[in-house]
Design a protein around this nucleic acid. Sequence first.
RNA 1: GGAGAGAUGGCUGAGUGGCCGAAAGCGAUCGCCUGCUAAGCGAUUGUACGCCCUAUAAGGUGUACCGCGGGUUCGAAUCCCGCUCUCUCCGCCA
Length: 425
Amino acid sequence: MLDIKFLRQNLDFVRTRIAERGQDIDLDAFVRLDGKRRDILQEVEALRNERNAVSKQVGEKKKRKEDSQDLISRMGEVSARIRELEDALKGTEEHLQNLLMTIPNIPHESVVCGTNSEDNPVIRVWGEKPKFESAPKPHWEIGENLNILDFARGAKIAGARFTLYRGAGAMLERAIVNFMLDLHITEHRYTEILPPFMANRESMTGTGQLPKFAEDLFKIENQDYYLIPTAEVPVTNIHRDEILDEKILPVYYVAYSPCFRAEAGSYGKDTRGLIRQHQFNKVEMVKFTTPETSYDELEMLTLNAEEVLKRLNIPYRTVSLCTGDLGFSSAKTYDVEAWLPGQETYREISSCSNFEDFQARRASIRFRRTSTGKLEFVHTLNGSGLAAGRTLVAVLENYQQADGSVVIPDALRPYMRGMDKIPAA
RNA sequence: GGAGAGAUGGCUGAGUGGCCGAAAGCGAUCGCCUGCUAAGCGAUUGUACGCCCUAUAAGGUGUACCGCGGGUUCGAAUCCCGCUCUCUCCGCCA
């Protein structure tokens, strides 16, 4: 959510920046509602002022045993009028709030203008792509040949876009998660969190999933619970409605969680394999920082994500999302894309974003700055560190051997009971 | 699932219809004092929104806020109703 005062004073600037995202937001409606709200507010506050003053007089007259029936009956009318205005005010404020909630964040000045992912500038390229004598296979073939990924059974049990992992496949996914958590908590100094995997409406609103993207979420029937689409939701909401001590900033959290996404509107996309699932595992890093450090923290966060791929020796590149590709709540996002030889393409495996105060304002996460004594919103950031399912895909495709086996990357062997390869069946 | 208790400022905790934006304590900030990162003394210390003024500073002023939402009343932290959450006991249970 944007600062309403900022929006009021910088309408044209906001209009331009939102347009660069390829979004069309009705800011004229905002101006109208905002003006209406203030008109009503002024009238109702003047009447309340009168009521408060007269009520005080009534109290004093009563004490002196004087009659005040005329005042009382007049105030009855005033109160009725106040009630009317309050209803109107409430309606207007709801409209205004709903509108405000659907306005995306302003892109950071360093974000390039573009329309889609093809306009994303490449920031870094790392690693050497593996060479294969014969054409490398896509992970779904490797996984099925090794009997470690079972797409048919996943579909039978739950439906399309669900996968059953078996044997070394299941262990490999678990190894990837544990390896990543250990790296971040020991070397990158994050605090491990294991959050609830469901969250309520308020939490979903705080991080920006609601109200605009309800169709992307799984909701529990007849309950105010949603399955989390990412650990970002519960972990960022750890500090919702809190005032943090400036001294504890920056705060670093890392959490494993399964992620549940309805993937509405993605029919026909990435239907094969593990790339696009209704349920997948992810390790997520979340930071709370002061405003002046958040962009440095974003750089470090992104490097933390990249470090996982370096340790696994998987080639990747990092791109900076252009305005047209930027997520709703984000001011700036780096995507880390792993090389997938079986599909001859780079695929997103991590997304690292600075939301500035956009989520903090929605979720009311503040800190008191000691130098001024004033409350300010923190900046929130998060990034995948990494998506576990897609990491498994990258391992299978990059480490596949001509005989059909898959070598286990050195960094994962301690987590695989010393196993050095998954032998061909 | 059943019975009971509770929810007040950054924290602890008073307050059962007007004198309450709210005692007291803690914490924090500033100043003083003190021969050594102890103690003491004094002052200050809520947020949001609107309006005025103005340099988008400071200041002034109004309104709202004592878990959330309704109601009673001229007037509600205080009375009534509903909800949420926390705690205790009973039942059930991985």
